[in-house]
């Protein structure tokens, strides 16, 4: 790992945390709890495509832990962590197959982030009926994931430019 990569990793991590903060400032319609833009995923997706999945995983992990402790508190940390890990696993898998574009990978990430959160929520309240929210969260995952994918695709060339 050279110093340039270290600097880039630090920069991307800081950006990811900042995205988490910006996201909190944007009010979202409360039709269904839990709908989020997933802005931080822009950074994770860009990192995956520029520095590789391994680096992206650690940036995602550091972001979730720091954002959780800074803004959300410990309970919120658990939800974010479940969503982030599941979403990352699916994105890395699809990235490796190479059958999907950056937009498709991002959509999958958005969808599975919501699925992970709802699984933890169902475990916490011990009520499987949480699945009632699933359709809304799936659709919102597709929409936000698509937008995040488009943003990532437009940003990526600038990150890769030497």
């Amino acid at each position: 790992m050279n110093s340039k990569k270290i600097a880039l990793c630090g920069l991307l991590t800081a950006l990811a945390i900042l995205m988490g903060y910006v996201e909190m400032l944007i009010p979202m319609p409360l039709i269904v709890p839990g709908i989020k833009l997933g802005l931080a995923n822009v950074i994770v997706v860009i990192t995956m495509y520029s520095l590789g999945p391994k680096t992206a995983f650690f940036i995602s992990l550091v972001r979730v832990v720091l954002c959780g402790l800074l803004f959300a508190g410990f309970a919120g940390l658990l939800y974010s962590l479940a969503g982030a890990v599941l979403s990352f696993a699916v994105m890395a898998l699809l990235y490796k197959t190479g059958k999907m574009s950056i937009t498709g990978v991002s959509v999958a990430g958005g969808v599975f982030h919501n699925v992970g959160q709802i699984i933890v929520a169902a475990l916490v309240v011990e009520n499987i009926k949480m699945a009632y929210y699933l359709p809304f969260l799936l659709v919102s995952g597709v929409v936000t994931g698509f937008l995040i994918g488009v943003v990532s695709r437009l940003c990526l060339p600038y990150v890769n430019r030497k």
């Binding site: 059958k99 999907m100 937009t103 959509v107 359709p135 659709v139 995952g141």
Partner: peptide
């Protein structure tokens, strides 16, 4: 956008509709 992207999006929307 590759073909698989659209298949994924369509699949998720269909599943969401089915659960709904």
């Amino acid at each position: 956008m590759k073909r698989m992207d659209w298949i994924l999006i369509l699949a998720v929307l269909v599943i969401a509709g089915a659960i709904y």
